[in-house]
Write a protein that binds this DNA or RNA. Structure first.
Length: 833
RNA sequence: GCGAAAGUGGCGGAACUGGCAGACGCGCCGGACUUAGGAUCCGGUGGGGCAACCCAUGAGGGUUCGAAUCCCUCCUUUCGCACCA
């Protein structure tokens, strides 16, 4: 007796989940053999509830992991928790729960949810960032970086989010707003710990070239973020009223040294030191002060955003262009930023859009020195800046050179004369990791009045986060309130000392966690190098695009540091990166405030894990956004239901049938067609998973196969058993990546040996892959006129003869002569008349 | 503004290196079985004539025997960056 799929999926899915766990099916060995596959999904923050974005992410990863396992790879597929961070602390403040219990409760809940989805994780390797056995290694890495001068302390103006009451790294400020709470970010001057990621700027940029398994989009975003620009610094001496050197100078940064003869003024940032040296008296003075007030007011109103209009004023200072001796006025204006380059520029209105706009507004001279062709006729007056490279004119002895040549030659001359210096500039800034919050890794340093900043010795790690700390959400670092934590003795001199009370940015935690998975139980070291190297780099890393310039730059940086510490031999942690799209409902991302959340538990309860997973894979290709559609979920459920009804009522009978021999059925067109479909489906799905990472088309192929079996079965005949059995067993095997529970159940019912999870992926029998008869499309002048069934091996002349005889074709050939024929064997014949 | 990606039925999406456009699913229409059906099964489903043909992959042009696919121009959408010198 059989039951409805609707009544049995829950029990069935739980049964297989229990069995996988009991048999430790997905536990990976300590080190893999030659064929390994590290399949990783970005670790979640334990918010307490899984959302559909997680389900999609993990369904994609699980499909790949299960497929690779069946293909014979030793697969590492772990899961863990990015469990430090602000929400736990906020929950503690709001509800009076300790962040630790809040976090652990959430983890427990989410683990249950993940298990119910039947994801093939090796839970033995589970990690959680907030546990001392994990974060002690954060501290250990920090100390290594301190030794290498990769971590340093500096007083700086930093981004400050008032709402989160903490510092933000540059990467965490998006258009002037906090990446987490979206409130406007201000600045504060604070002593902070920084990681010298800029030391790796060049390598981080150059190695992007080697990341061929990454989406172009992410590489581009990183390239922009690193912002490499090659140029020169040039010193412009400040001259006094008589034209003599004042002894002062301003240094400008330019990437277009070739245009320097066209400089007609200089511009410094409003907060540039030179502004303070502007003449103290004279009519210009009041204008300057008014401008500085305007700039300050604008900055206070909308910090960190670009002003709407260019605004500036002549400082009264004069500078000499060292390349041609020309005396230029020095302006200060709101479009020049102190944070970039030297905070000062030479303005070349003829060849820079911003300079052009500014010069036009203030009627400053525009002087053309680059022309688009080597040999221009008359030079037209500029109506817009010509910003491309070209050839130099009006540039003294450099006239006639190309822009590129000129940059090289002029830099060399300027360096020889001592007023220019070639530099490579990066937009990337050092990573500020200090956070004035409780729920994070304590930074392992001690301040001693006598010895200064002292590193906590390795033997004293971990520096434990004290449990009882008042959390109010206001004031400085919460750890300052814990006397027992703060007071310590200096490890160097033994005098009373104070501990650092800031904690680490949680992005530190997630920058290396994938190494820990490789050797999660290690108590002596963050990981054993040999073991980690046997699994790393990650073969496929799956997550959202949101981390393109944060996590994914930090973790590349970290791996380069680990390499330089001698812990690993490679410099890039991720071979292939898949950025999956978002899950939308009604065209926008699901969110509580919009009230358009679809609860994964609800879906699993109503349709089961298989259906829920199947839908997330089927409804859209992985990298595109997916619109949640309940009717589509029903469709996936119906598909599984159909598979169920097709095979389970007679599973016992089929189980007793023999498998068809390799050539069986070839004499019977109906049976041959089914076997062909079965084997073609194997081939198709294998290619899609193996080479293209397409997950929606394999599901479609499985549906087609089901339809074919249904059609075959409609006119069932005695002796069909072996053929149905083959189809059912192949179906069971191919379903494993997409609907693993149904896969196992079907396999078991059809008398399959062992479990599908423990079996090899099926091989398509080449005999059934090629069709004996193929349909050839006959075109006349590129338009389809007929279709012919011919033997696969038919030659051009044979097909041509058949085509001429075809009534449809003949009608279009009447009264015309064939000028040319194009024949694609097995595909098409095009007659050009 | 700069840069990137993408535009295919009513909808989600197929179409490997240029070779049958619309696989598969949803929705819709018709039918069967039914007391009933939002279950299941069968048939149909890009548009126009409804027959043989014509028109269709954002718009326009080009290359080609042949273009959703390659090239050019434009439009739209999404994303990223946004005075980066």
């Amino acid at each position: 007796m059989t039951t409805d799929y609707r009544d049995s999926f829950d029990e069935l899915e739980r049964k297989w989940q229990d069995r996988w766990e009991r048999e430790r099916t997905f536990v990976a060995p300590r080190s893999p053999g030659s064929r390994r596959f590290y399949c990783l999904e970005m670790l979640p923050y334990p918010s307490g509830r899984l959302h559909m974005g997680h389900v999609r992410n993990y369904s994609i990863g699980d499909a790949v992991a299960r497929f690779r396992r069946m293909r014979g790879d030793t697969v590492l597929h772990p899961m863990g928790w990015d469990s430090f961070g602000l929400p736990a602390e906020n929950a503690a403040i709001k509800h009076g729960i300790h962040p630790e219990s809040w976090t652990e409760d959430n983890i427990a809940q989410m683990r249950v949810q993940l298990r119910r989805l039947g994801l093939s994780y090796d839970w033995d390797r589970e990690i959680a960032a907030h546990r001392p056995e994990y974060y002690r290694w954060n501290q250990w890495f920090f100390l290594r970086m301190l030794e290498k001068d990769l971590a340093y302390r500096s007083r700086r103006r930093v981004n400050w989010c008032e709402s989160c009451r903490t510092v933000l790294a540059n990467e965490q400020v998006e258009a002037g707003r906090c990446w987490r709470c979206e409130s406007v970010v201000g600045t504060r001057e604070l002593e902070q710990w920084f990681l010298r990621i800029t030391r790796y700027a060049e390598e981080l940029n150059a190695d992007l070239e080697t990341l061929t398994g990454w989406p172009e989009k992410v590489r581009l975003m990183q390239r922009n973020w690193i912002g490499k620009s090659e140029g020169a610094r040039v010193r412009f001496p400040i001259v006094d009223g008589a034209g003599g050197d004042s002894g002062e100078s301003i240094e400008i940064f330019t990437t277009r040294l070739d245009t320097i003869h066209g400089a007609t003024f200089c511009v410094v940032a409003p907060d540039h030191p030179a502004v303070r040296h502007a003449p103290a008296a004279g009519p210009a003075r009041s204008g300057l002060e008014a401008f500085l007030r305007r700039a300050a007011a604008r900055e206070a109103a909308r910090p960190g955003t670009a002003p709407e209009d260019k605004d500036g004023v002549d400082t009264g200072l004069r500078a000499r262009n060292p390349y041609n001796g020309e005396i230029l006025p020095v302006w200060t204006a709101n479009f020049v930023l102190m944070e970039y380059g030297t905070g000062a520029i030479m303005a070349v209105p003829a060849h820079d859009d911003r300079d052009f706009e500014f010069a036009t507004k203030y009627r400053l001279p525009i002087c053309q020195v680059i022309v688009p062709t080597r040999d221009p006729g008359a030079v037209e007056p500029a109506v817009a800046a010509f910003v491309e490279d070209g050839w130099l004119i009006a540039s003294g002895r450099y006239a006639g050179l190309s822009s590129a040549e000129a940059r090289t030659v002029m830099l060399r001359d300027g360096e020889a004369a001592g007023f220019a210096r070639g530099i490579v500039h990066y937009r990337l800034l050092d990573w500020g990791i200090s956070r004035q919050r409780y729920w994070g890794t304590p930074i392992p340093v001690i301040f001693c009045d006598a010895c200064g900043v002292v590193a906590v010795p390795d033997r004293d790690l971990p520096v434990l986060l004290p449990r009882e700390v008042p959390l109010t959400g206001s004031g400085g670092s919460p750890l300052e309130q814990s006397e027992a934590f703060v007071r310590c003795v200096c490890p160097r001199c033994g005098a009373p000392a104070r501990r650092e009370t800031d904690t680490m940015d949680t992005f530190f935690d997630s920058s290396w966690y994938f190494y820990r998975y490789a050797d999660a139980a290690n108590r002596q070291a963050p990981f054993d190098s040999t073991v980690a190297e046997s699994w790393m780099p990650i073969d496929l890393y799956i997550g959202g695009i949101t981390h393109a310039t944060m996590h994914l730059i930090y973790c590349r940086f970290f791996t380069k540091v680990l390499r330089d510490l001698g812990l690993v031999k490679f410099g890039e942690p991720v071979r292939n990166l898949l950025c999956q799209g978002m899950v939308l409902k009604g065209g926008t991302a699901m969110s509580k405030s919009k009230g358009n959340i679809v609860d994964p538990d609800d879906m699993v309860r109503r349709y089961g894990a298989d259906t829920t997973r199947l839908f997330t894979l089927f409804a859209a290709p992985p990298e595109k956004d997916l619109e949640w559609n309940e009717a589509g979920v029903e469709g996936c459920f119906r598909f599984l239901d159909r598979v169920w009804r097709l095979f389970t009522p007679r599973a016992a009978t089929l189980a007793a049938e023999p498998a068809p021999a390799p050539g069986d059925g070839s004499g019977d067109p109906r049976r041959a067609a089914l076997r062909r479909k079965v084997h073609q489906t194997i081939a198709r799905i294998t290619v899609d998973l193996d080479r293209r990472l397409h997950l929606n088309t394999p599901v479609a192929a499985l549906m087609e196969l089901t339809n074919a079996v249904q059609d075959f079965d409609r006119e069932g005949r005695p002796g069909d058993g072996p053929f149905l059995k083959e189809a059912g067993q192949v179906m069971a095997l191919l379903l494993q990546p997409f609907a693993p529970h149904m896969s196992e159940e079907l396999w078991a019912l059809l008398g399959g040996e062992g479990t599908v999870s423990g079996r090899r992926w099926p091989e398509a029998d080449p005999v059934w892959l090629h069709e004996e008869d193929v349909e050839i499309v006959v075109q006349v002048n590129g338009r389809v006129r007929s279709r012919l069934r011919v033997p696969a091996a038919a030659t051009e002349s044979e097909v041509l003869a058949l085509a001429r005889a075809d009534a449809h074709v003949a009608g279009h050939l009447e009264g015309k002569s064939i000028r040319r024929t194009v024949f694609v064997p097995g595909r098409l014949l095009n007659l050009v008349v």
